[in-house]
Amino acid sequence: MALIRLLARPLLASYFIANGVDSLRNANALAAQAAPVTEKLQPVAQRAVPNVTVPKDPTLWVRANGAVQIVAGAALATGHFPRLASGVLAASLVPSTATRYRFWEAQDKAVRSDQQTHFLKNAALAGGLAIAAGDTAGKPGLLWRARHTAKDVRREAAHAVKDAKLEAKAFKAAHT
């Protein structure tokens, strides 16, 4: 593993692990902030998985998001499924950012500035996670492998057609 990955992944993950722990510890306090967002997300989630009962309790949503951040953060930090972990962490940023940093609603200029700074920090983290999610560590990604496999299959099929024509021509010449 490259030294940069060895250092960067745990550094990036550290924020999410700490944020997840904070979410678990302070779930009740954060639930009040999360309620407007969870009220909108719950029906969408329920429609997405109609056979599963999606909870309405914002405290549970905060705890679930915190647990997801801890688990995915630990996976990223240790290099286990880093691309998947990065994607999951990026997805977990959306509700937590929408919950905690709605700067456009703040009336006080100092609060608005602070909220905007945190919002932009989360946007920057999302950018870092997007890079990490696309990092194949120098190995071909699934898309590259799929394209090259398709190219190889087309080439082999063309060779098989050419060989079949030659065989047919040889067969015809031998039997005429």
Rank of each mutant, 00 (worst) to 15 (best):
S23E: 13
A157N: 09
S92L: 14
P55E: 04
G73K: 07
R9F: 14
A130L: 15
D152K: 07
A132K: 03
L30C: 00
L143C: 01
R147Y: 13
A13P: 08
T59P: 06
N28Q: 14
A91E: 06
A67H: 01
K56M: 05
G87T: 06
L143G: 01
P55H: 07
Q115C: 11
A106D: 12
D108R: 05
A27S: 14
G128I: 09
N65A: 08
F81K: 01
L143I: 11
A29H: 07
N65C: 05
I131A: 11
K151C: 00
G79Y: 03
N28I: 02
W104V: 01
A2V: 02
A130G: 08
A29C: 03
Q69A: 11
V37K: 05
A29F: 13
A126P: 08
A85K: 01
I4A: 14
F119Q: 00
F171G: 02
D57G: 03
A45D: 10
T136N: 13
H175W: 12
R63S: 10
V62D: 12
G87A: 13
A137I: 09
S92E: 12
P36T: 00
L7F: 14
A130H: 02
M1N: 02
A74I: 15
V68P: 00
L3I: 04
I70S: 09
T38F: 15
R25I: 07
A13T: 00
A123L: 15
A72P: 06
L30G: 00
L3Q: 08
N28F: 12
A8T: 00
N122E: 11
R154Y: 13
P43C: 10
N65K: 06
V52H: 10
V62T: 06
A8F: 14
Y101I: 02
A164K: 06
A98T: 00
R5I: 03
V68D: 05
A18E: 04
N65T: 08
I131K: 01
K162D: 11
A164N: 05
A133V: 05
A90I: 00
A32V: 14
L89H: 05
A158D: 11
L143R: 01
P55Y: 04
S113M: 13
V37D: 04
T99M: 15
A75S: 07
V21R: 03
K139E: 09
L11R: 01
K56G: 05
G66T: 11
A29K: 10
I131H: 04
V88H: 12
E167M: 14
T38D: 11
K109F: 09
V37P: 03
F81G: 00
V44A: 12
Q116R: 08
H148Q: 10
L142S: 10
A8I: 01
H159R: 10
H80G: 00
G134E: 04
A34I: 02
Q46E: 12
A146E: 09
S14T: 02
L41Y: 08
A164P: 02
E39F: 11
L41R: 02
A35C: 03
A173H: 05
H148T: 03
N122Q: 10
P36K: 03
Q33W: 13
A75C: 14
P140V: 05
Y15S: 04
A67K: 03
R5W: 06
R147V: 12
A85G: 02
R112D: 03
D108A: 14
T59G: 15
L7W: 11
L76S: 06
P140Y: 03
H148K: 06
H148W: 13
V94I: 15
